[in-house]
Simulated scan of single mutants.
Amino acid sequence: MRILVVSDTHRDRYALRNALLAQPNAEVVIHLGDGEEEANEMKLNFPEKMFLQVRGNCDWGSTLPTEGIAQFEGKRIFYTHGYTYNVKFGLYEAVSAARAKKADVLLFGHTHNPIAEYRDGLYIMNPGSLNGSNGTYGTLDITPAGIVTNIVSCD
């Protein structure tokens, strides 16, 4: 199963749409915040995909939650924008929260800096910012053989 992971689109509908078109096999889209308006628009344009969303610090007036848990193919995913876990100052709080929730994967945004790493049983990914011509997004593949994270550059 492929999951498209995006964050910090900041009203760039064009980039979000292009990422969705570039990943036709992604069954699920997880938007990690700062882009509620365009994510809601894409939900209508891509009704065959499941959309999961959280509120970012720039999603003014949003009623979305600040974090979520999803389970696919037996793997538990903890996702958040990251500002409530101070990710701009390090990953300790977010990693601790993911471990407390018994997650296999931690997804977060907010910093606009893409990362994909593995730390003692936890896959950690920030897809970066999908805004502008140098935007990035992530793919998360969950297979019987394991989990693969990937950062994709839009340039």
Rank of each mutant, 00 (worst) to 15 (best):
M1K: 07
L4T: 05
L4I: 11
V5T: 04
V5A: 06
V6E: 06
V6C: 11
V6W: 09
H10D: 00
H10S: 04
R11G: 06
R11V: 07
A15G: 10
A15S: 14
R17F: 08
N18M: 15
A22S: 13
V29K: 09
I30D: 00
I30M: 03
H31M: 05
D34Y: 11
E37A: 10
A39P: 10
E41F: 15
L44H: 04
P47A: 03
P47L: 05
F51Y: 14
L52F: 11
V54K: 07
R55L: 04
R55S: 10
G56H: 13
C58A: 14
G61T: 12
G61V: 05
T63V: 11
T63G: 06
L64C: 01
L64E: 07
P65Q: 07
T66A: 12
E67F: 10
F72W: 06
E73A: 15
G74F: 05
G74S: 08
F78A: 01
Y79K: 03
H81L: 01
H81M: 04
Y83R: 08
Y85M: 05
V87L: 09
K88F: 01
K88L: 05
F89D: 09
F89I: 04
F89T: 07
E93L: 13
A94W: 09
V95I: 15
V95G: 03
S96V: 08
K102R: 15
K102G: 06
L106K: 02
L107P: 04
L107C: 00
F108I: 03
G109P: 04
H110E: 00
H112I: 03
N113S: 03
I115P: 01
A116H: 09
A116Y: 08
R119C: 01
R119D: 14
D120E: 11
D120A: 06
G121P: 08
Y123C: 11
Y123M: 12
I124M: 09
I124V: 12
M125F: 02
N126H: 04
P127L: 05
G128H: 11
G132Y: 05
N134M: 07
G135Q: 01
T136S: 14
T136L: 04
Y137D: 07
G138I: 07
T139H: 03
P144E: 15
A145G: 02
T149M: 15
I151K: 08
S153M: 09
